[in-house]
Design a protein around this nucleic acid. Structure first.
Lengths: 146, 146
DNA sequence: CAATAGTCTATTAATCCGATAGAGTTTATA
DNA sequence: TATAAACTCTATCGGATTAATAGACTATTG
């Protein structure tokens, strides 16, 4: 499951993608429009800025804006940043690998083999979905849910 | 990410699948062999019993054993039981659905559309992988990791 | 009846999550 | 240059969850 932080991040980025190239956007605008607690959002945006995705301008007329192009911000990057590993198990994570303490031999561990399959299937989607893709989806509503 | 509980559950079930039809197995045997804290494992096995997957026998010569056939225990069932939702977001979960508070309209939410894709890809694997499949994988080591 | 082994209740420490408070710093502009 | 706007930083908070442990209890078997 994604954390709220992660979900909020994506929502905020999509919002900023909609305003791309229109100058800085106020935290409070995003907060109100997307129903995200303002102080929480502050921390999130700061983190996205430190990661090089957003830029900010202080003072009067300031705000946050996308520094990278919407199509260059992949969901994998955002999720890893705000939520951590994408894999089901640390021992199959590409970016957050940690040895499995219980395992005698990772190679013969059946669970990790399944976890790898899931990881690859998930990455295939998230690697190829950018913030601009998400924005596009919003504009063409889903045909059928579930 | 899967919780330790979930991972331990699967490891224990695979162990019991290996001993399928050979009578009850001691908690302490599983605990030692799989490096799972005994008391924690106790609670887990009890839960799997209450879910109808395992049976138990008390007293001398007692222990736990699989009640369902290894090929009938799907990973989806075990994970939902011990870890909760499989989906990335509650609003696209089939078994643990919860409305998304921030969303004005779920149908036009781009994130949930992506989350649905991921959910379906994940389920396609986990629905079709049983404890006996995991056991088989252990016997034929992975060719190439990562 | 005694030893074995699962059952139940409860408590714990540690961690993380989501959220908030408040002081500080930078900047535009009147 | 003073002021208000707006981001920045530190810090703290309650609550939930996770992982693990302790101990008393109950059922079974030889």
């Amino acid at each position: 499951m994604l954390s709220k932080k992660s979900k909020y991040s994506i929502k905020a980025l999509v919002y900023l993608a909609r305003e791309y190239d229109k100058g800085p956007v106020l935290i409070s605008h995003i907060s109100e429009s997307e129903h995200i607690p303002k102080k929480f959002l502050e921390a999130i945006l700061l983190e996205l800025k430190n990661a090089g995705i957003l830029g900010s301008k202080k003072g009067f007329g300031g705000g946050y804006y996308l520094i990278k192009k919407p199509e260059d911000v992949k969901l994998t990057q955002v999720i890893r940043l705000t939520n951590g590993p994408i894999a089901l198990l640390p021992c199959v994570s590409l970016n957050f690998y940690q040895r499995c303490e219980e395992c005698v031999d990772e190679k013969t561990c059946g669970i990790s083999q399944v976890a790898m399959q899931v990881r690859d299937a998930t990455l295939a989607i998230l690697e190829n979905t950018s913030i601009s893709d998400v924005l596009k989806k919003e504009q063409t509503p889903a045909k059928n849910r579930k």
